[in-house]
């Protein structure tokens, strides 16, 4: 597989996780420091199912996503009723607990040495189709009544409650959805790089996704997708040592957030309308 294709596959997989964060943090204003742990769960569960139990890939994916969603229900149920910073704290603790368990259960997970020998089942077709479906899903989510409720909760929770939105149920649903996105991204990554280790799923990874969402613009789906492509590709494109390119990347983000707080793309969306308008019959001006 060529270098460019390998990188594009990783970017596609991570972009799906970022889209989950876009729904959760960008649209609902909930900060989860444990999103990467859901990605890790997806990766580990599916890899173990396929390698150790010889389950078919599709079934393993389904189980992995369901496990992540189930745990998200538990964590969300316990903490989403109380304040937002509690949610951030609880998801952080959850992430630490998950990576701690991955390191501890050496017999099953291989511990800190990681889990390898995963077959390469993520084909380019699968990865890019998944990304397209995910983008389409989030696009529909934003257009839907449900997505509009999200924005209402983000801008004023009390007002949303008064309007009759069940805020707790809404947040829980979005959190579980975003966990499913992260878990699926984890599956794609695990069967692409063929190796997983607990250190890949710490809280800094979750924070990076939040940064990406804000970089592209949390009010723009186009911004989030392009932002994640730009920022995930940037470390590869800037051919310095890793430390230098991460530093440059951080400075870039600081500049963007300082100069354009609403993100690189603001509220701008890519749309077909200008192109469609070209084909519309022009309205003739009334001649007096």
């Amino acid at each position: 597989m060529s270098f460019i294709l390998t990188i594009s596959l990783s970017i596609a997989a991570y972009s799906i996780a970022v889209l989950g964060t876009f729904m959760l943090t960008g649209m609902n204003g909930l900060f989860s420091l444990g999103q990467a742990a859901f990605m890790g769960l997806g990766a580990y569960v599916s890899a173990i199912m396929v390698v150790n139990y010889n389950l078919p890939f599709a079934l393993a994916v389904l189980i992995a996503i369901l496990v992540a969603m189930g745990l998200a229900v538990l964590v969300g149920f316990a903490t989403l009723r109380i304040r937002q910073d509690f949610f951030a704290l609880a998801t952080f603790g959850f992430g630490q607990a998950v990576t701690g368990l991955m390191t501890e259960m050496v017999n099953v997970t291989g511990g800190a040495m990681g889990f390898s020998n995963i077959p390469r089942l993520t084909t380019p077709t699968l990865a890019f189709t998944s990304l397209a479906v995910a983008i389409f899903f989030v696009w529909g989510f934003r257009k839907s009544h449900f997505g509009k409720d999200s924005l209402a909760i983000r801008s004023n929770e009390l007002a949303a409650k008064v309007e009759g939105i069940d805020v707790f149920k809404h947040k829980l649903t979005v959190f579980v959805l975003s966990a499913a996105f992260a878990a699926y991204a984890g599956v794609l990554m695990a069967f692409h790089t063929r190796y997983v280790e607990p250190a890949m799923y710490g809280w800094i990874a979750s924070v990076t996704w939040i940064i990406i969402v804000f970089f592209g613009g949390r009010d723009s789906l186009t911004g989030t997708v392009l932002g994640s492509i730009i920022l995930l590709a940037a470390p590869e494109a800037l051919r310095f040592t890793t430390a230098w390119r991460t530093l440059i990347y951080c400075v870039l983000i600081l500049v963007i957030i300082n100069l354009r707080p609403r993100g690189l793309f603001g509220t701008w969306e890519l749309s077909l309308r200008p192109i469609l308008n070209l084909f519309k019959p022009k309205k003739h001006q009334e001649v007096q």
Binding site: I204, A243, T246, L247, I253, I257, P261
Partner: peptide
């Protein structure tokens, strides 16, 4: 400073603060 003068929302402070954490970490690694 700049975000505060522009009266930016609190979430932007959070985003720049974690970016700052990562940047300073990279300075130490370099």
């Amino acid at each position: 400073r700049w975000i505060r003068l522009q009266k930016g929302q609190l979430v932007y402070f959070f985003v720049t603060s974690v970016t700052m954490l990562m940047a300073l970490e990279q300075v130490l690694i370099i």
